[in-house]
Amino acid sequence: MANKSVLGLFIDENEAGDALSSLRKAKYQDNEFEVMTGTPYPHGTFGEAHPKLRLHRFPIFGAVIGFTVALIITVGTQLAYPLVTGGKPVLSIPPMLVIFYEMTLLFSVIVTVFGALFESRLPKIFMGAYDERIMTEGYIGVVVTVPIDRISKAEEILKKSGAESTKRGWEEERILKKSGAKSTKRG
């Protein structure tokens, strides 16, 4: 069954936090709801789960690739064209360090840039339930994304917790618009 989303808009931080507690009590999982804010609140303000970020893996992954490429380039070149310089061994570390450093750094940067795009959930074509007032007026949004048979109960919990208004995700709006119904914005 396809997932649908419902958004509850809160003015008060405590009420938004209560909504999360109520959702948990009603057996909604942490990965089924998310808090949206127009400003970065400290982690745990609403009792939300700490997001699992993988960004730090990207620079390390890039660094490993970059270092490996640098190793192949420098060792490969020196073995292919053995040049004794200043009486030093053909494979000496100091002259390779500059290339190691630069390649490691460059690959880390490139992979981090792509990682940042990936972590940002880009490209995000389907916005789900969202309200402009979150970014413009400072409302706190609690969005629940669950199969459609559980959406009404989630909406009820949000309302009971003090949501000023609730709103269904655009997917449903589009379906209703096709069938001639009005917007589902409530509150």
Binding site: E34, V35, M36, T37, G38, T39, P40, Y41, H43, E48, H50, P51, L53, L55, A116, E119, S120, R121, L122, P123, K124, M127, G128, Y130, I134, M135, G141, V143
Partner: peptide
């Protein structure tokens, strides 16, 4: 795609 989710602010 920016919606201000906890995940987005964290990242």
């Amino acid at each position: 795609g920016w919606v201000g989710s906890t995940h987005q602010w964290g990242s």
